[in-house]
């Protein structure tokens, strides 16, 4: 059976709603605690999961995710812990991707990473600093191991790049709603809807919108035009702000339910 994220989007579409995709970095607050947290997100309404691979130089991330990744690295999280997290999360049945900057994959060995990700039950990779132009090795490895290739499109992408990028994707297309890094924002971006529209003109794949969504109302707004709503920093934030783990997991459950309700309200 394919582990592709397509399953989650198909199911959401069948229910007449957008999918909710949740992100947390692996190893945050520690490996076991991170797995527990992601399971809470799945139990409370995330349709698919992105497990972040903490990296020393995360140029696309704002302060919230940087802080979590740094905490994970300081605790000694390793690439194999990320794969361990994927295995535990994928066992819940939710399609589970890894979101990673490229160097750790290159270092691990691109084909070896693809093989180990596939055997952990992972769905594929989201690659914020790898564009298809540079991805020959990854595309071959992903195809060989039946994995999703999720590349990003941006409001600044030309039509030609939108066509090229979406043609290289499998699973879904990640549309970055703002010109900027990850992080919760006060209001949703007016750049999201036109980007989704332009992207949908050149692909039949689901288009999910990320960057800036932090509550159910914003999720509902984004879900009006997108096939999926991606939330990361807001989940990290509630864990960072919680006085202890139990409270953190409760807050995480509340936020997930709010967002899951949002994608059903659109």
């Amino acid at each position: 059976m394919s582990h592709s994220t397509t399953r989650a989007f198909d199911q959401a579409r069948a229910e007449g709603r957008a999918a909710l995709v949740g992100y947390l970095p692996a190893g945050f607050p520690d490996v076991a605690g991170g797995i527990d947290a992601i399971k809470v997100m799945v139990e409370n309404g995330c349709d698919a999961i992105e497990v972040g691979l903490p990296y020393s130089d995360p140029v696309m991330d704002g302060p919230t995710i940087q802080a979590a990744a740094q905490q994970a690295l300081e605790q000694g999280v390793r690439t194999r812990d990320v794969l361990r997290t994927v295995e535990a999360v994928a066992a819940t049945g939710a399609p589970t991707l890894v979101m990673t900057y490229w160097n750790p994959v290159e270092r691990y060995g691109v084909d070896r990473f693809a093989a180990d990700l596939a055997s952990a039950g992972g769905a594929g990779l989201i690659t914020p600093d790898l564009v298809p132009d540079e991805a020959t090795g990854w595309i071959a490895a992903a195809d060989a191991h039946d994995l999703d290739k999720v590349f990003l499109v941006s409001p600044s992408s030309t039509d030609a790049r939108l066509a090229m990028t979406t043609a290289a994707c499998r699973g879904f297309v990640y549309a970055t709603a703002v010109m900027g890094v990850t992080g919760a924002r006060e209001s949703t971006s007016e750049l999201a809807a036109p980007l989704v529209e332009r992207t949908k003109k050149v692909t039949d794949l689901p288009v999910a919108v990320g960057l800036g969504v932090s509550n159910g109302d914003q999720a509902a707004e984004v879900a009006r035009h997108a096939d999926g709503v991606i939330v990361g920093s807001a989940f990290v934030r509630v864990l960072l702000d919680a006085p202890d783990r139990t409270t953190g997991l409760e807050a995480l459950a509340d936020l997930t339910r709010d967002l899951a309700d949002g994608v059903r309200r659109a």
């Binding site: 140029v59 696309m60 490229w102 914020p128 600093d129 790898l130 564009v131 132009d133 540079e134 590349f151 990003l152 499109v153 941006s154 409001p155 600044s156 992408s157 030309t158 790049r161 990028t165 970055t176 010109m179």
Partner: peptide, 20 residues
């Protein structure tokens, strides 16, 4: 033309910066 020097170089950057 793509800015590679043998196996080095290139553009390992977010899509948001490709147009720039």
């Amino acid at each position: 033309g793509d800015g590679t020097f043998g196996r080095f170089g290139g553009r390992m950057m977010p899509e948001a910066l490709m147009a720039a």
